[in-house]
Design a protein around this nucleic acid. Structure first.
Length: 166
DNA sequence: ACCCCGATCGTA
DNA sequence: ACGATCGGGGTT
């Protein structure tokens, strides 16, 4: 159980998105294995929230790697991301699916669903995953087979194979 | 001040 | 295939 430090997140977003598969995120004491991620990379990525520059909502994407980016969408859901790359470059990995012991996969197999299950909201935007034990990510040595596909639920940028799913 | 639409999900 | 539901961001 090796806790991921800032240098894990401070790398190319595709690398982080791929390597997060099989890692364990621990939120308020509840562990969950990450099974699906997507990369959103910089202002030139039309699907990235930073595509039209820095705003109040996406501000944390411009900050340090290893910080949470949580946003509210469709009037009823929250989505969880981990900020990546160098400070000043807006990029993040969307957590689209996890697995947890004793929990039906159907409650965790979507970005909105897993946030609802954990109770993750905008209150948790900007949390540092490398400080304290409230929210962190660890490497348990587990590796899972996965595939690369186009990202889901977006209208632009679908040509990139930036989704990683077990 | 207003308007459109979205990194979703459940039901049909 | 479609409706629910509302905050954010661009535009006026």
């Amino acid at each position: 159980m090796q806790r991921l430090k800032r240098d894990f997140f401070e790398r190319p977003t595709l690398t982080v998105a791929e390597e997060l598969i099989g890692k364990t995120m621990v939120f308020r004491g509840t562990p969950a294995v990450i099974t699906e991620t997507e990369a959103y990379v910089g202002e030139d990525d039309p699907a990235c929230h930073a595509a039209r520059g820095k705003t109040q909502r996406n501000a944390v994407m411009y900050g340090k790697a290893g910080i949470t980016y949580v946003y509210f969408i469709y009037g009823m859901y929250h989505c969880l991301n981990f900020v990546t790359e160098a400070e000043g470059f807006p990029a993040a990995v969307l957590i689209r699916g996890v697995r947890a012991d004793g929990v039906d996969d159907k409650k965790l197999n979507g970005p909105g669903k897993l946030c609802r299950f954990f109770g993750i909201t905008k209150e948790h935007n900007g949390e540092d995953l490398t400080v304290g034990d409230g929210f962190y990510v660890a490497d348990t040595g587990l590796t899972l087979p996965f595939k690369r596909t186009p990202r889901i639920g977006i209208s632009a940028g679908t040509e990139k194979l930036w989704r990683f799913v077990v």
